[in-house]
Amino acid sequence: MIPEQTFFPDPALDRAFGVVMALATEVWVLRDRLAALETQLAGRALVDRAALSREPADDAVREEREAFVAHLLQNLLGAQQAKGPR
């Protein structure tokens, strides 16, 4: 293996920014696909785009969103999830 070139004082940042950019690419690919899907569905009157884009009256997905956030941010607590060596 030939080590990759590095540009930041800490090579960990070189690698971590690669992860960020890979995820950003995935986000765009998903957005692109979702937009294409909406266009196709709206063309067949299977989706009401105006209703889809309107601010929702109630927070129907709050519980799911909070679980998502907990999954994301529990990493910051630095607590073992299963007892083991310190």
Partner: peptide, 11 residues
């Protein structure tokens, strides 16, 4: 093809 084109367009 669509995902490839979207990924390349993003880059």
């Amino acid at each position: 093809g669509r995902s490839f084109a979207a990924g390349q367009a993003f880059l």
